[in-house]
Design a protein around this nucleic acid. Structure first.
Length: 320
DNA sequence: ACCGAGCTCCGCCAAG
DNA sequence: GTCTTGGCGGAGCTCG
């Protein structure tokens, strides 16, 4: 069996967040259609817990699922004691610490980060949580390097994500990290969600629903994607969107949460990943086709965004 | 390792 | 009065 994931339901767990991991991970399939992950929902002692939505959830697994898991996921709960007092049930803390100590990955969604922090798993480490509880979190856990502005934070064996839907982004990110962007794209397609948003993207976007075509920067983004292999400077890009440079950059950030240049690098890296995974194209050529120009520029960006060099990325994810 | 030219981002502000 | 636009310039970055 593949990678085992245990989603830990605590009392008054939010049912939406509880359901996200199994939905995404069950949709991550290899080229033969076999699942990469084995995802189960459990409670600490195997007993039913209340959900936030007025029904009880009777799990088929208890603490043993946590002991076996390669990844443990903590979704948020309503009236979470960790948010109120900064403390949690000692048995819960012990179970999470034991899992981390044996090398399991620990991940939280939304205010689940309070539980990880209360278990001492985030001390002096970078993390995020829902933007609305930023002050509360800082007051309770001053040693955690909280970044309230991003969708999720991947610190290797500890991953935290922002409010609700950012859990989807983090799950997709994990699939991508483990099995490459083709696998993550496949899972996203099967779940009919957008392929992904990068972790660094802003939590708070003025206009979350980018209006279709209308006015706005959407047509300019499409234009950029159609000529991604060529250099694009801000002036001509803004002109393509029929706006001044100032208005263009302003609207762009409002609509995407990223600056135009950041977004462009993101798109180019995404395309480079795709080419590295699905073709044997030399790195120099991949760099040209993705608008980076030189292999050196591509290497630099890959390292910054993905953390590995192009060749290493291909070795890890090329499907024969 | 360093440097300078050029580009990007964004706060500020005046104009529509 | 309020909102949007876009020019300006400084800080910071990238590239050769």
């Amino acid at each position: 069996m593949g990678h085992r994931i245990a989603v830990l339901a605590l009392d008054e767990v939010y049912s939406f967040d509880l359901g996200v991991p199994s939905r995404i991970f069950d949709a991550a399939l290899d080229e033969r259609g076999n699942p990469y992950y084995d995802t189960v929902v459990c409670t600490l002692d195997g007993n039913p817990v209340r959900t936030s939505a007025g029904y009880r959830m009777a799990p088929e697994h208890g603490g043993e699922a946590i002991e076996r898991a390669d990844t443990v996921i903590v979704p948020p709960t309503r009236n979470c004691p960790a948010v109120g007092t900064g403390t949690i049930d000692p048995r819960l803390a012990a179970a999470l610490r034991a899992a981390a100590a044996r090398g399991a990955r620990i991940m939280s969604i939304c205010t689940g980060a309070f539980v990880l922090a209360a278990a001492g798993l985030l001390d002096r480490r970078p993390a995020t949580t829902h933007w609305i509880v930023t002050d509360r979190f800082r007051a309770l856990f001053p040693t955690v390097r909280l970044d309230p502005d991003v969708l999720f934070v991947d610190d290797g064996d500890v991953l935290t994500s922002a409010g609700a839907a950012a859990g989807i982004d983090l799950c997709l990110h994990m699939v991508r990290r483990d099995h490459g962007s083709e696998a993550a794209n496949g899972a996203a397609r099967r779940c009919v969600v957008p392929p992904w948003r990068e972790g660094g993207q802003a939590q708070y976007i003025d206009r979350p629903i980018p209006e279709m075509s209308a006015q706005g920067t959407a047509p300019a983004r499409a234009w950029a994607l159609s000529r991604l292999d060529r250099p694009i400077n801000l002036g001509e890009w803004a002109a393509a969107g029929r706006m001044s440079v100032r208005t263009f950059t302003r609207r762009f950030r409002e609509e995407t949460g990223q600056s135009p240049a950041q977004w462009l690098i993101q798109q180019r890296v995404d395309r480079a990943r795709h080419l590295l995974e699905t073709t044997g194209m030399p790195v120099e050529r991949v760099a040209r086709e993705t608008g980076f120009g030189t292999a050196m520029a591509l290497r630099k960006r890959m390292r910054a965004v993905v953390g590995v060099a192009p060749i290493a990325y291909r070795r890890a994810f090329r499907t024969p």
